[in-house]
Computed example of a mutant assay.
Amino acid sequence: MSDPICPLCDRPIPDGTGSLHHLVPKLKGGKGGPTVLLHQICHKEIHATLTEAELARDYNSVEALRAHPRLAKFLAWVGKRPPGFRSKVPGRRRLR
C-alpha cells in the first residue's frame, strides 16, 4: 500500500508520521467534524499562522488553507523538500 498524500503540499506522508487536523477546531465546534491527515510540519505551520477563530470562520477547508498567502508561500517552499522532511529549528508561534 502506498503512503497517503498530504492534501496541502501534495507530498507522500511516510508511514506513521501524519498528523490529524480538524478542519473546524475542536474548541470551535469541530469535535467529530471532518479531519485531514497532514505532514506534521504542514499542520504546525497552519497553527503558527492562524488562530482557532480564523480557522473556524475563514479557513475550514483545504482549498481555503492553500489560498492563504503565508501558507501558499510555505507550501511552495516545503513542496521542494523530501516527504520525510522535518524542520531542525525548534518552532515557536510567530507573531501575527
Rank of each mutant, 00 (worst) to 15 (best):
V62T: 09
L23A: 02
T35A: 00
P25F: 02
R94W: 08
P4H: 03
S2D: 12
S2H: 13
P12D: 07
R11I: 06
A48F: 14
K73G: 04
K88D: 13
K88H: 15
H47G: 01
R96V: 10
V36E: 15
P34D: 10
K28W: 02
V89T: 15
V36P: 08
V62N: 09
L75I: 08
I5L: 14
A53W: 03
R81H: 07
P4Q: 04
E45S: 03
S87Q: 00
P82G: 02
P12A: 09
A56E: 07
L95C: 13
L37P: 08
K31V: 04
D15K: 13
F74W: 14
H68Q: 04
R96H: 14
K26Y: 04
P83H: 06
E54R: 12
S61V: 10
L37E: 14
G33L: 02
T51P: 05
D15I: 03
L8K: 06
S61F: 11
T51G: 08
L55G: 06
C9E: 09
R57H: 13
F85R: 01
V89S: 10
V24W: 08
E63Y: 01
Q40L: 14
G29E: 05
M1Q: 12
G29M: 07
P12S: 09
L23F: 06
H39E: 01
S61K: 07
I5F: 10
M1P: 12
L27Y: 04
K80F: 04
G84H: 12
A53R: 10
D3R: 11
G30M: 00
C6S: 09
L23P: 06
K26M: 11
D10E: 15
P90A: 10
D10N: 15
G84T: 07
P69V: 05
K80N: 14
L75Q: 00
V36F: 05
I41C: 06
K73V: 01
A67I: 03
R57G: 07
L23R: 07
R57P: 04
E52L: 12
P90E: 12
H47P: 04
P82Y: 01
L71D: 00
E63K: 13
G79Q: 06
D3E: 15
D58W: 12
T49K: 03
F74H: 14
N60W: 14
K31T: 13
L95H: 13
H22A: 03
K44P: 01
I46F: 02
H22I: 00
L8N: 05
C42E: 05
T35M: 13
A64S: 10
M1D: 14
A56S: 07
P83E: 01
G32C: 10
I5C: 05
L75D: 02
L20H: 10
G33I: 01
E54G: 04
A67D: 01
E52S: 15
R11P: 00
A64W: 08
G32F: 04
H43L: 07
K88P: 07
G33W: 02
A48W: 14
H47N: 01
R94M: 00
R93S: 11
P82E: 00
K73H: 12
H47V: 08
P12R: 09
P34L: 00
L20M: 08
